[in-house]
């Protein structure tokens, strides 16, 4: 099946349309949030928060509430717990992250195994975009609008706290508040991505398109648009492979994102490998 057939199939099959809309939205919001995650050196935190929504999903199911609420609650609790442990002991931040997210994840696995079948667990962990329900699609769209709106409104604050947090604090901006705002958005994005790429691979969608964009531009605004673009492209091409060859949707999308990164890593006109080999940059004298 070639790409034309794929487009034909999209126009014919309702489930494929929903899958496409959902995964494109996920590609965009992960790409946008991911820029701030990598610039703040928080890739591991992104991994942690995405894993930490698992117990929330399980508890929501147990209580019969929307899994969105539980996911955000355990995601944020884990973020707060990480901050608490690293600020109140000699434990370093990355160690605190490692301890807390694995505990949350382990708890989630046990809760899920009590409540639901193992195939449900598999879908939460790895995603199954071709089984997206209309309600899932709408939730992803709403989350997308909220997250993009928040980034637009707080762009200045996100920029200054990422670039020079000390100056931000000096003029009275609460860097902690901005941090937890970003963590909240991160949990929302993870929940939105559950169906598409699943918990385990969300971090790839956050980091890889953003890192690809980072190698191509020296301006944050352009990096955000490029990253969203790479996220979208990965979603569409990944979905094509997933649908055509009956592959896991999350894994296909992530591998496409990786392939795009590899291309840019080698050929980027500014920061690519070839450029580095051709003209080794002189060390800046400081």
């Amino acid at each position: 099946m070639n790409f034309i057939d794929f487009i034909q199939a999209i126009t014919e099959y309702d489930f494929l349309q929903k899958a496409l809309v959902t995964s494109v939205m996920v590609g965009i919001i992960c790409g946008v949030i991911g820029c701030f995650i990598i610039l703040r050196g928080m890739s591991l935190m992104g991994d942690a928060i995405s894993h930490a929504v698992l117990p929330g999903v399980a508890i929501s199911y147990l209580l019969g509430i929307n899994f969105f609420i539980g996911a955000v609650a355990t995601g944020l609790l884990t973020a707060l717990g990480i901050g608490f442990v690293s600020q109140n002991s000699r434990i370093k931040n990355d160690t605190a992250i490692g301890i807390l997210f694995t505990s949350a994840f382990a708890l989630g696995i046990i809760l899920i195994s009590f409540l639901r079948s193992s195939s449900d667990l598999y879908h939460i962990l790895f995603g199954n975009v071709l089984a997206v329900r209309p309600s899932d699609m709408w939730m992803t769209l709403v989350i997308g609008i909220i997250v993009l709106g928040a980034i637009y409104l707080f762009y200045k604050e996100l920029l200054v706290t990422s670039f020079d947090p000390t100056m931000a604090a000096a003029y009275g901006l609460s860097t902690r508040l901005v941090h937890y705002l970003l963590m909240t958005m991160l949990t929302l994005v993870t929940v939105a991505s559950l169906q598409t790429v699943g918990i385990i691979l969300v971090v790839a969608m956050l980091i890889t398109p953003a890192a690809t964009a980072y190698l191509l531009t020296n301006r944050l605004s352009r990096m955000i648009f490029l990253s969203a673009g790479f996220g979208t492209l990965s979603s569409i091409i990944g979905l094509y492979f997933s649908f055509t060859y009956n592959l896991s949707s999350g894994a296909s999308i992530v591998l496409v994102a990786t392939a795009l990164f590899a291309l840019v890593f080698i050929f980027s006109p500014r920061h690519g490998l070839l450029r580095k080999w051709k003209s080794p940059k002189k060390e800046l004298t400081t």
Binding site: V160, F163, D164, Y214, L220, R222
Partner: peptide, 24 residues
Amino acid sequence: PQRSTIDWDFPIRVLDAVLIGCYP
């Protein structure tokens, strides 16, 4: 701040870095 505390690879141009001074 001290120069060593800044990430100089941050994707920001000189003019935009100065513009941050208007944020407060």
